[in-house]
Design a protein around this nucleic acid. Structure first.
Ligand code: MN
Ligand code: MN
Ligand code: ZN
Ligand code: ZN
Lengths: 145, 145
DNA sequence: ATATAGATTATAAACATTATCAAATAATAA
DNA sequence: TTATTATTTGATAATGTTTATAATCTATAT
C-alpha cells in the first residue's frame, strides 16, 4: 500500500529529472510511511539513526523539491514550523488545540465561497485553505481527571 | 467612525485592567485608523516618527496584550510575519498571491463543515479558519503589459 | 570509466519573535 | 502629597526556524 505510493513518488522524481539520492529516498519513505504531518525537524531526528551525517539543510532542500514538483503540500500554521503532507488527495484538516494532532477529513470543495469571493472582490481566485480547530477525543478524556 | 472604535477599544482596555500608555494608545490608533492588516514591523516603522525611542518589543508586547483580550486577531500566513486585524466582526480574507494584499469579505459561517468534521473525527470543534487566494485587480492589470 | 550537473555537508547568516532586566512610569495606599 | 507597589518600557541578548554559501561528493549519461 504505502510501498506502492513510494514507487509512484520515485517515478515522479525521475520524470521531473530529480536525482534519487539515499537521503531523498529516506525522507520520502518517512513521509509516506509515517502517515502523519511531520515538521522538517521531526523528519531530521527520525532519520539521524540511519544518516548520522545528514545535514538539516538537506531535509529542508528536499522538502522544497518535493513541494515544487507537487509530491507534498506544505502546511503553515500559527506555530513556528511548517508541516508536510504527502497525501496529495484533496482533503481538509482538523487540528487539536491542546496536543496539536492533525487529522484528515473529507468535505466537498467550497466552490461557492470561491465564486462569491471572486464576484465581491474582483480577484481571480486560484484556491482556498480551510482548517477546523477543536479538542480531540484523547485530550477530552484527559480533561476529565 | 474610527474615532468611535478607538474609544470603545480604550474602554475595553480599562475594563481589562490594562494601563493605557502613550505607546499603547498609538499602536491601537494606528491599527484602527489604517484599516489594514499590518505586521508588527509596519506598525513599528509607522510610529517611529512620533516615538523615536519606542522599542520593537513594546509593539510585540502590546499586540499580544490586545490579542489576549480580544481586541485584535493575529493572522498567520505562510510568509514570515504575523499580521494583525482590529476588525473583530466575523469575516474572511482573500489574499493576492502576487502583491500580498489582504481584502475582507463576508460570507455566512461554515457551520455545516464544522458539524460534519465533529461527527467524523469526534473532536469538539471550537472554530475554523478559511482564506481564499487569487490575483487582485491591480495585479491583473499589471500582467497585461 | 569519465565527465559534469546537481546534491550534500558544515557553517554562517537572516529573520521574526521572545526573554531578560534595569530604569521609568503609573496606580494605589497612607 | 508622598511613599509603596505593580506594571511597562527600552536596550539588548537569546531563541528557533529557515535560507545562503562554498567546498566536497555523487548520481547519471555518454
Ligand atoms: Mn493531511
Ligand atoms: Mn480583516
Ligand atoms: Zn488533542
Ligand atoms: Zn495584487
Amino acid at each position: 500500500m504505502s510501498e506502492r505510493r513510494l514507487q509512484e513518488a520515485l517515478e515522479t522524481l525521475k520524470e521531473s529529472g530529480v536525482r534519487i539520492t539515499p537521503q531523498r529516498h529516506a525522507v520520502l519513505e518517512y513521509l509516506i510511511k509515517s502517515m502523519s504531518h511531520p515538521t522538517a525537524d521531526e523528519i531530521y531526528k527520525a532519520l539521524e539513526g540511519k544518516f548520522p551525517n545528514m545535514s538539516v539543510a538537506t531535509v529542508y532542500n528536499n522538502l522544497r523539491v518535493f513541494r515544487d514538483i507537487g509530491l507534498v503540500r506544505e502546511l503553515t500554521y500559527g506555530d513556528s514550523s511548517s508541516r508536510f503532507d504527502c497525501n496529495t488527495e484533496k482533503h481538509y484538516h482538523i487540528i487539536c488545540e491542546k496536543c496539536g494532532k492533525i487529522v484528515d477529513f473529507h468535505y466537498p470543495s467550497l466552490d461557492e465561497v470561491e465564486s462569491l469571493a471572486e464576484q465581491v472582490t474582483g480577484f481571480d481566485v486560484t484556491h482556498h485553505r480551510m482548517e477546523v480547530y477543536g479538542i480531540c477525543n484523547d485530550c477530552k478524556k484527559k480533561e476529565q481527571h
